[in-house]
Design a protein around this nucleic acid. Structure first.
Length: 174
DNA sequence: GCAGTGATCATA
DNA sequence: ATGATCACTGCC
């Protein structure tokens, strides 16, 4: 159970990685506390052309991490109160990341970061080497039959085409 | 259904 | 410097 996902796992096409993350354990270690839950809902944000992505209009102070190497955490604040947790995917200079939306019974990206004690201090940190926050193998096999694809949530601003892309993946146990 | 909340970014 | 926006949540 101590198989931390290596950087190579994340250095692949974003949508593939998103699907493969379902059922893997999101792990947080703070002091003596260890929180680990299987990932159940994610969303892919894929490249410059993706109008729903922060990276669509180019690099800014906030989104630079998305332009870096795979396997780094991209954490930002929305609506002045909710931290969003993403993992960067694909090669350097290709901006892509996956939003962690739910794990175990913790539903919703803002609730997830609250539960896992995540904030801006996790931004820009490499997931594979850090003791504090990483993803590991769970041993759970997720069958393709258990994966539901839908459009992403809360991205109407991206227009009819990009807001409808089936880049959200939910693991429904059967 | 909609207010809360504040960083971020474009515009100037 | 200012104002609109926001990969959301919780309470009405």
């Amino acid at each position: 159970m101590h198989h931390v996902l290596p950087q190579a796992f994340f250095d692949r096409p974003t949508v593939e990685v998103a699907r493969d993350l379902l059922g893997k354990n999101l792990v947080r270690v703070v002091g003596r506390e260890r929180i680990a839950l299987p990932i159940t809902e994610v969303e892919a944000y894929d490249g410059f052309k993706d109008k729903a992505s922060h990276a669509h209009k180019g690099a800014t102070a906030r989104n630079v991490v998305m332009f870096g190497e795979a396997g780094y955490w991209y954490v930002y604040l929305v609506y002045g109160m909710h931290w969003m947790l993403n993992i960067v995917t694909g090669p350097r200079d290709y901006p892509a990341a996956i939003l962690m939306r739910s794990a175990g019974g913790v539903i919703g990206p803002g609730r997830l970061t609250k539960h896992f004690l995540i904030d801006k201090t996790n931004n820009g940190v490499k997931s594979v080497l850090t003791e504090g926050l990483f993803i590991e193998e769970s041993g759970i096999m997720v069958s393709p039959r258990e994966i539901v694809k839908t459009p992403r949530i809360g991205v109407a601003y991206a227009g009819p085409v990009w807001s409808q892309k089936p880049y959200r993946f939910v693991w429904k146990r059967r």
